[in-house]
Amino acid sequence: MKYLVTVKSVEDPEIKIKIKPDGTSIETDQVKYVVNPFDEIAVEEALRLRDAAGGGEVVAVTIGRKDAQQQLRTALAMGADRGVHVVCDQPLDPTLVSEALAKVVEGEKPDLVLMGKQAVDDDQGQVGAMLAERLGWGQASFVSKETSLESEDEKAKKPGVSIAGTTLQVVREVDGGMESVTVTLPAILTTDLRLNVPRYASLPGIMKAKKKEVKELKLADVVADPTPKVKILKLEPPAQRKAGIKVADVPTLVTKLKTEAKVL
């Protein structure tokens, strides 16, 4: 089996984002980048599937700036076998990204594509569905699992999804419950938060990752027209929240909830 995982380099969610004076992009000068947390879950699932099957190949792909290579290397340090980096330093939108990925899939011919259900930078959540449509493949979105993240299976790093022949069996998170589905391979799978706890890139893994192959492509190699279809008009920070207040005791709290917040 060959697994393709997507790894997007995103601004560290821990840092404070600042909007540039132009109002349509963010300050990148002091910004640290990390692997999109949902993509880490996808990488982890691919590694578990490969290792449980006792073989196979995990290929990690990123589309982005030259220095996004560090996030790609992080996936390699976690254990992915090699990387593909579509190097580009221009605004992208889900249409472009899915077109580029479709081209990479065409070349790599994976059996399963695993990707985060969304990227935490712009929260579009469209690429998985668009890619499935472009390829005409089945898709399981918001993939989770029945067992909890504290379970023995999770501690033993067992995959949360299972594959039998050309059938992929997954559990999806739906409103207020779980849905079990099967999808025929080749397929796309987008990962939700409770699928697994991704491993840390280890120091020996980081050393090994240095020697793993990363194939570089240009955006022009994988898309016909690099003009994004979506244009950002304006970015605004959320409104400042007012500071909270401290109350002396529970009765005062209840009164305030009734009379001021009007929630009781």
């Binding site: 560090q70 992080t74 340090a77 980081i206």
Partner: peptide, 14 residues
């Protein structure tokens, strides 16, 4: 180097 930053970042997260 990239390797040095990665070593630091993975430890920081841990």
């Amino acid at each position: 180097s990239e390797e040095e930053r990665m070593a630091r970042d993975t430890t920081r997260r841990f």
